[in-house]
């Protein structure tokens, strides 16, 4: 047997063991992976997985708003269309802010793994400031549109637009409240196991918000403003 496997050119070198130990039973028990003999997964995994399921159902809810927008995007009822209303420089800045905040959120996650309190707090704070700047730009945009008489009651297109983008903005606002809570809890309670679980869920939430924003700036703004 060993002579055969030794002759294979792509044979796995024995120096680095397979971290998942495929075919060699599970890490926290004796059964094979997925057979449940090792008992339930750790609380960190189950909590984050449950939050992952929530995020996916949240994204499915967003998909209904996207579907409504896609169907109603042309129904402008004689009012202003997307290319009259959308300011792409503002959208570009918003995209940059949210993308950078997603990046700094990840840096905060790395710092929390080093158990580095100062840098974790700094990166969380930077994430919060960038998120707040994003939200301010969005509120300004909405206020300007409503002032021009292009509020959500003007046309079906604008109803769908305000529902979709406003729902994302609401999520960012909720995320900012959560972020403030996490900064305070981390400061007072330190890197406890439960605080690290909440931080993990917050990071997932923030990255998911950026993923939804990708769909919004592409399908709503860029497509709506293109001639």
């Amino acid at each position: 047997m060993s002579a055969v496997s030794g002759a294979l050119p792509g044979a796995i070198s024995p120096g680095r063991p397979d971290p998942h130990r495929l075919g060699h039973g599970s890490g926290h028990g004796h059964g094979a992976t997925g057979h449940g003999e090792g008992g339930p997964a750790s609380k960190f995994v189950t909590v984050a997985y449950g939050f992952w399921i929530f995020l996916l159902s949240d994204i499915i809810m967003f998909s209904a708003f996207f579907a409504a927008y896609a169907v109603l995007a042309k129904e402008i009822a004689g009012g202003p269309a997307g290319r009259d209303l959308f300011e792409l420089p503002r959208v570009a800045i918003q995209t940059g802010l949210l993308l950078t905040s997603s990046f700094t959120c990840g840096l905060g996650s790395l710092a929390s793994h080093r158990r580095d309190m100062v840098w974790t707090q700094i990166w969380l704070l930077v994430t919060g400031i960038l998120g707040a700047a994003f939200l301010i730009l969005e509120v300004q945009e909405f206020a300007g549109m409503i002032e021009e008489g292009a509020g959500p009651s003007r046309s079906a297109f604008l109803s769908a637009f305000f529902a979709l983008v406003g729902c994302h903005g609401l999520h960012v606002g909720m995320g900012l409240l959560w972020l403030g809570t996490m900064i305070a809890q981390l400061w007072v309670k330190g890197f406890r196991a439960d605080i690290l679980r909440r931080l993990q869920c917050f990071n997932l939430f923030w990255h998911a918000l950026d993923i939804i924003w990708i769909a919004i700036f592409t399908l709503v703004y860029l497509l709506g403003a293109s001639p």
Partner: peptide
């Protein structure tokens, strides 16, 4: 490993597990 990495069979979504060897891990990944 830190205690949250103790579970080798399952990765939590978003878990910073692939720090060492992988391209998508650590600071370089971000």
């Amino acid at each position: 490993r830190p205690e949250e990495f103790s579970d080798l069979d399952d990765s939590a979504p978003g878990e910073e597990r692939i720090n060492e060897q992988e391209l998508a891990g650590g600071l370089l990944g971000y």
